[in-house]
Simulated scan of single mutants.
Amino acid sequence: MVRCPGLGDNNFSPVSPNIVTLQATVYVPPHPLIQHWLGVVRDRHTPGALFRPALGELGRWLTYEAVRRDWLPLTATTVETPLAAATATFIDPMVPVVLVPILRAGLTLLEGSQNLLPLARVYHFGVVRDEATLEPTIYLNKLPAQLDPDTRVLVLDPMLATGGTLMAALEALVSRGAQPAYIRVVAVIAAPPALQKITRHYPQVQIYTAGIDETLNEVGFIVPGLGDAGDRSFGTM
């Protein structure tokens, strides 16, 4: 079993022994709603009309898990209740928060994340993977030329298979000033090749995923996975 640090001594990801050695933090939250919605999106009989909102729910709950561990800086102040003064703690509005959905499937996670972080800026990042070589090509990059080094970045990428797409996004973010320690990734399913690649190059980046599957097939799809998240979401199968 691969341990997922930070979730307690009895929380582990459901994968076979020795399939991946991680150098960074990969969380598989044991939340019952995450498990439920993961089952919904895995089912081949789930229609697109339910598949999309199910991914949105996974975006919501995985974002909740991703931001609750020392990521969002807080500031303390005093407010007036209807009866008296009271101390209050708020998210520091001076620290930028950014959401980066990886097109196109990452759009399905965006609504759930935005519901929790409504003031976050959204920068779209489009990547297409060559079906023969499995190499990624960037076709859209809406990232700003420079990011404040204190910016908190949440990358939304449903499927971490070979890791090429996420690597391209991380390289673009870091080259613009993003600090790996402030980058967190939300993914629905991850596979060992991607996790090994990402954690080797960016060990400070934390990854939050609903499940870790064992392998990829000959065309780079995660097995058992959930199929093509983009095609199933947008009816283009």
Rank of each mutant, 00 (worst) to 15 (best):
T151S: 10
E131A: 15
R3C: 10
R52N: 00
R121C: 06
P158G: 02
P82G: 12
L83C: 07
G56I: 01
I91M: 05
G48S: 09
R152E: 01
G220L: 04
P149G: 03
G56N: 04
V15C: 05
M1Q: 09
I198R: 03
R152G: 05
F125G: 09
Y123H: 09
A24H: 15
A181G: 13
A105T: 02
T165G: 06
V155Y: 07
V188T: 14
V100C: 12
Q206N: 14
A187W: 02
L107M: 13
R184H: 14
P82N: 05
L62G: 01
A85S: 14
M237A: 12
D43C: 00
G106K: 07
D70M: 05
L33W: 10
K142P: 08
D150R: 08
A178N: 08
W71Q: 04
N18R: 07
Y123W: 02
G220S: 03
D150A: 09
T199F: 06
Q204S: 15
D231Q: 11
Y64G: 02
A105Q: 04
L107T: 06
Q179G: 10
P118G: 01
R42Q: 06
P30K: 14
A120T: 08
N115R: 15
A54Q: 08
A191L: 01
V40L: 13
G164W: 09
L216I: 14
G6K: 09
P96K: 11
G39W: 06
Y123D: 04
I207W: 07
R68H: 07
R152W: 00
E218V: 11
P14I: 07
P193F: 02
A86P: 03
T81F: 03
L160I: 00
V155G: 07
L166M: 14
Y64N: 08
D150W: 01
V223S: 00
G227S: 11
D213W: 15
E171A: 10
R52W: 12
A24C: 15
V20I: 12
Q204N: 15
L110R: 06
P30A: 14
I222K: 04
Q204H: 15
F12N: 03
L226P: 07
Y64H: 07
A145M: 02
V128L: 05
A190D: 12
